[in-house]
Amino acid sequence: MGNAIEAEGLHKRYGEHQALRGVDLAVPAGSLLGVLGPNGAGKTTTVRVLTTLLEADSGRAVVAGHDVRTHPREVRRRIGLTGQYAALDELLTGRENLHLVGRLHRMGTGAAKAAAGDLLDRLDLGDAADRPVKTYSGGMRRRLDLAACLIAGPEVLFLDEPTTGLDLTSRLTLWDMIRDQLAQGVTVLMTTQYLEEADQLADRISVIDGGRVIAEGTPDELKGKVGGERLEVTVADPADVPEAVRALRAAAAAEPSVGQDGRTVGAPLSRGMESVSEAAAALHTAGVRPVEFAVRRPSLDDVFLALTGGSTREGGEPTP
């Protein structure tokens, strides 16, 4: 199996704003690529180019075996897209929305009806199927939107921030649907602001910032780039902190640092478990009684902050 999505050197300029400055992506068939990046990094523009909604100024993209520029119709036959905002007809019922999209995919009436009924049940929308979409909650709309892009059985799915603003239950339902699609061999490109989401679902991750890919790899590889494991020790009394710092210094690979709460001391570990036992012994000898003693691996949040220089926080979107 080759790549279901391939992009090389995509450039796109809107007036003065250079949205894409040479985006390269390669997504092996049947895998999920998570595209991470702060607001305005170029994630949505990339998705729009790959889904034929927007023509790039230069560069080449092949999706499901067809060039998006020269054979957009062939690409559209094989993809499903959910945008950041659920593109549904408020006045139609959930069932009618799916039927409409199915018919426009040139499915027969019977096939479209059957597929719509099946998807509505699988996405827990069976009870609401015949209510107008304007009565749906945000989570229901997102699920219906996903159903709309699945109805014709696409080979490649593009999910642009599919879970932004969703509650946990709806998010988990969507994750299940996405895993289900992967199990059936569908290729998925998903943009997200939620690092946890990428960590959970993605086979590989591309981090986009300023219109280009600044890092690429498996979630573990990316975490490895920011460094190894850290020991974090929290004491009950801030007065014990200097003592704890002194105790950890011997075991740590670098000078321990004190967290913002004034009670947590963290330090990178140089020799894994050996360092951990040394640190525990040193704390015991010094008479420091930690309330928490934990070994942490770097989260994708750390990766993200390290790579993008903290610009993720400007968006104001809290990570879950």
Partner: peptide, 13 residues
């Protein structure tokens, strides 16, 4: 505004 045009344009219609 509501994204219907995006959806239609991503369909092979």
């Amino acid at each position: 505004r509501n994204g219907a045009v995006d959806r239609f344009r991503s369909l092979p219609m």
